[in-house]
Design a binder for these strands. Structure first.
Length: 545
DNA sequence: GTGTATCGCTGCC
DNA sequence: ATCAGACCAATTCGG
DNA sequence: CCGAATTGGTCTGATGGCAGCGATACAC
């Protein structure tokens, strides 16, 4: 027996996660989590929260890295690993299963893993770079696995691969924190601090004053609730609302302070370097402010399609050429902070008024805004937005404060579904996690002359029961195997919905679909009734993309 | 040794 | 991004 | 009026296409 370990043992965290995963109700999960969190030492609390919420950040560890490490620690071949993965659909469970067979070797000295210790190891994994870094990462992973018990190994891998599957993520951890520290305003604080870890730390510090937005700490984003049409949207609000175009670009939060300008993406990444024009335009603003809006490609008086904008996203260095090729506009639709004052609790109408008083100009401009009184106006506005080339319409409650997530549906988005396609399943792949053992992902094709050419994959839209039936049906018409699935005889016709058609080299049809989903299984149609490449081409051309 | 293609991971929608 | 499923609190229904 | 059934709000999990970056594998 080792001496009592100071601080938070990883094994305790694992025990808690096991318990959380094993109970069904959310309330029960919250109770278990809050009991655990309340007893944690201060240094471990934020880390444990991030681990449990799955917001620990990038680890550079995925399937391949785990596979490599596992083959070093256990006496197994690729075949056995593949088989175990197929039957469980979870890397963590796979490792736990392998642990039952024992490791190749044991460490000279077993050390108790602690939560902060693990964080240090994860930092090492995330930071490792340069020649030989793959090997170094493998060493770290192998070292950790050698110290782990079965359950620890399972959760180690689950945390690293970002697939916890305990039925509790950020929302539940937040609730548990509120309960553990008996604070009701946790949601509001979370919005401002933007991270469960930072929130936990503040709670633990005993500081009960409400935080205020701060320079260069991104605020969690408010998101719209998707609704199918103008009628349901107006029924949802039951009163006049503000309307804005739905711009097809990327969400951007701008911090403009004396010390400088920084830009944040939806995942709250610092993306300042990707948008130098936006930064410099903001520099000339005379006030300190936090703005929320959408960056859109804009050239020669026209908005350019997202696929084009995509080509300059994520670039560490945006060259002059890119800046000329894909010019930008930043449409600002919200103001979260102005001259030392938080605007989060101010109603939208007031935030907009303040925003429109800011004198934005050039490529920096307030988003168009209009009043929508009733369903007919909503419908008319939506049509007009679509005709002018926007993705759709966003409706907002003018009296609402700025709140994180979709909560409350205070913002609602309306998009338009394109025409659907009837396509034939030609290949099916095995699912992961709760879809282990099921053929859950279907590659479908359309006719090009006498040939079936794949045009996309879809996994969503079917019920669990339908996926089950599909698995049986497809196995009956299997004609071959591929790496993660089976090739099938063209027989099953799907009606597939999507948002737009793109040119693409991914599929041999030369096209791909944006946001494909299964609308229906067309049992009434035979494969020869599926749509043709001519229809796809005309859909592509009609969108003007 | 240099240049290029591919893989693995991540983050936009 | 998308969708389905599960849970929970609040509201409505049936007697 | 009480307990049961229904509804609406939220959260969770499984996965789509495109693209960059960094490390490594491969061609010469």
């Amino acid at each position: 027996m080792t001496s009592p370990t100071k601080g938070a043992r990883f094994s305790d965290l694992c025990r808690t996660l096991e318990a959380v995963a094993s109970v069904r109700g959310r309330n029960e999960k919250v109770r278990l989590l809050s009991e655990y969190l309340a007893g944690l030492p201060r240094d471990a609390l934020p880390i444990a929260c991030r681990f449990m919420a799955g917001t620990g950040g990038k680890t550079n560890v995925g399937w391949a890295a785990v596979n490599d490490a596992v083959r070093e620690v256990f006496d197994t071949g690729p075949g056995a690993i593949r088989e175990l993965y197929l039957s469980h659909g979870d890397l963590g469970v796979l490792v736990q299963e392998l642990m039952k067979g024992g490791k190749k070797s044991v460490p000279l000295q077993r050390e108790e893993l602690t939560v902060p210790g693990l964080q240090a190891a994860f930092d090492e994994l995330a930071k490792a770079g340069g020649r030989g870094s793959v090997e170094r990462r493998k060493k770290v992973l192998v070292g950790l696995l050698l110290q782990c018990s079965g359950v620890e190994a399972k959760y180690l891998i689950k945390i690293l691969s970002g697939e916890l599957r305990t039925g509790a993520t950020e929302g539940t951890v937040l609730e548990a924190l509120g309960k553990a520290f008996a604070v009701g305003r946790v949601r509001d604080w979370y919005l401002i601090l933007g991270d469960v870890g930072a929130l936990a730390d503040r709670l633990a510090s005993g500081d009960v004053s409400e935080p205020s937005p701060r320079a260069f700490t991104p605020v969690a984003f408010m998101l719209p609730l998707p609704l199918p049409d103008a009628r349901s949207a107006m029924a949802h609000f039951g009163k006049p609302v503000f309307g804005e175009h739905k711009y097809d670009g990327v969400r951007l939060q701008a911090h403009r302070f004396q010390e400088g300008v920084k830009l944040y993406s939806r995942r709250m990444e610092d993306v300042t370097a990707s948008f130098p024009e936006v930064s410099s335009a903001l520099s000339s603003l005379r006030v300190s402010a936090i703005l929320d809006g959408e960056v859109v490609g804009f050239d020669a008086g026209r908005h350019i399609p997202f696929v084009k904008l995509q080509q300059r996203l994520h670039r560490r260095d945006v060259g002059k050429r890119m800046m000329e090729e894909v010019p930008l506009r930043y449409y600002v639709f919200d103001l979260l902070y102005l001259e030392g004052r938080s605007m989060l609790r101010s109603p939208l109408a007031e935030r907009r008024r303040a925003l429109e008083g800011l004198d934005l100009g050039g490529d920096l401009r307030p988003a168009d805004r209009f009043h929508v009184e009733d369903e007919a106006q909503a419908e008319e506005r939506f049509r007009r937005s679509r005709k002018e080339g926007y993705e759709g319409l966003v409706l907002k409650d003018p009296g609402s404060g700025y709140t994180p997530g979709r909560r409350g549906g205070l913002w609602v988005k309306l998009k338009e579904e394109m025409d659907t396609l009837d396509a034939v399943i030609v290949l099916a792949e095995w699912g992961n996690g709760k879809r282990a053992g099921l053929l859950s992902d279907y590659t479908f094709a359309i006719w090009d002359g006498g040939d079936l050419k794949p045009i996309g994959k879809a996994y969503s839209g079917l019920t669990d029961a339908e996926i089950g039936e599909m698995t049986l049906a497809l196995q009956k018409i299997k004609v071959g195997d591929v790496w993660n699935g089976i090739v099938v005889k063209p027989a099953v016709v799907l009606e597939v919905a999507f948002d737009s058609v793109q040119r693409s080299a991914r599929h041999s049809s030369g096209f791909a679909l944006r946001f494909p989903r299964i609308k229906a299984v067309r049992r009434d149609k035979r494969p020869e009734d599926a749509d043709t490449i001519e229809k796809v081409r005309s859909l592509y051309e009609s969108t003007g993309a």
